[in-house]
């Protein structure tokens, strides 16, 4: 079955939809980057502490 012809609403709102996609994707990327930076910083600041082990033990408790 063929898809119905695209409604003009989708064409008209393309810029809004694409904009939202980019903004949300960017937000996820920033949160990811921030998390990685903070975890690595923790590791460097407290070299004796293994962050992986901490996280895992936290989950299992």
């Amino acid at each position: 079955m063929a898809f119905r012809k695209e409604h003009e609403l989708h064409t008209r709102r393309r810029s809004r939809n694409m904009g939202m996609f980019i903004v949300l994707f960017g937000f996820v990327a920033v949160i990811f980057g921030l998390t990685m930076a903070k975890v690595r910083f923790e590791e460097e600041a407290r070299p004796g502490v293994n962050v992986d082990v901490q996280i895992n033990s936290g989950v299992s408790e």
Partner: peptide, 11 residues
């Protein structure tokens, strides 16, 4: 400041 933390903060 870590560049990523700095970037996110300014954002």
């Amino acid at each position: 400041v870590h560049p990523m933390v700095g970037f996110a903060s300014i954002l």
